[in-house]
């Protein structure tokens, strides 16, 4: 573990950016990225859960018995997910309505559990915090950018904080395929391809 804290943070932004490099947590990636706003909202909720659960798992790593570690992780993660769900209902209700079932489903997002198991359980608090934050922000960026691509092509608009900006004018005939479920797969595939093209050079 010779990596510095900064490196732990930045690896989540490019080297190990979750949906594109690790190809993990695809369920929310495909389902909620119909608009930029949904993608970013989902990413932020996941980031909160990731950071909190990473800190707590790292704090308790010497106390949690090895045999029941997964059960402990799930308790911790589920607690924070429920907290996020309640907070969202209280302060961002319209977004909560749009994301719906995918907020409680953060519990089973394999990125969150994966980070607890692979990183936080073996590392001290600060690197775990940096790792959680980095991966979370990477996830948010990925969801946001996929959302932007899909919304722009599928609808000709970008939605941020409940204001829809018509980026492409009325001349643009929306390619609605992109905002439907199959469009999510195609969009993700193209972005993966692009990432690999850039990365291989």
């Amino acid at each position: 573990m010779a990596k510095s804290i900064v490196q732990e943070f930045t690896k989540g932004l490019w080297e190990e950016i979750p949906p594109f490099r690790l190809v993990l947590g695809l369920c929310p990636v495909l389902a909620v990225t119909k608009t930029v706003e949904n993608g970013i909202g989902m990413g932020m909720a996941t980031t909160f859960v990731l950071v909190c659960s990473n800190i707590l798992v790292s704090l308790l790593r010497n106390i949690i018995p090895n045999k029941v570690r997964i059960a402990c992780f799930i308790i911790i993660i589920a607690t924070f997910v429920t907290v996020v769900e309640l907070l969202m209902q209280a302060y961002a209700y319209p977004l909560f309505l749009k994301l719906g079932i995918f907020i409680p489903l953060i519990v089973v997002n394999c990125i969150v559990l994966g980070r607890s198991e692979a990183f936080a359980f073996k590392n001290p608090i600060l690197p775990s915090l940096a790792d959680g934050l980095g991966i979370g922000i990477g996830f948010t960026l990925a969801l946001g950018s996929l959302g932007a691509v899909r919304e722009l092509i599928g609808n000709g608009t970008l939605t941020i904080w409940e204001t829809t900006i018509p980026v492409l004018g009325s001349w643009y005939q929306p390619f609605t395929f992109m905002v439907e479920a199959p469009g999510a797969f195609v969009g993700l595939g193209l972005m993966l391809c692009l990432m690999n093209l850039v990365g291989s050079k």
Partner: peptide, 30 residues
């Protein structure tokens, strides 16, 4: 194992109850 899981669960229950109480009125309004 039993002790750790029990403590963790009760702590989580307590936290959730607190958050729920704190946000209940706000959620109803929303």
């Amino acid at each position: 194992m039993v002790v750790v899981l029990t403590i963790l669960s009760s702590f989580s229950g307590g936290l959730l109850a607190t958050v729920r109480n704190g946000t209940k009125d706000k959620i109803e309004n929303q």
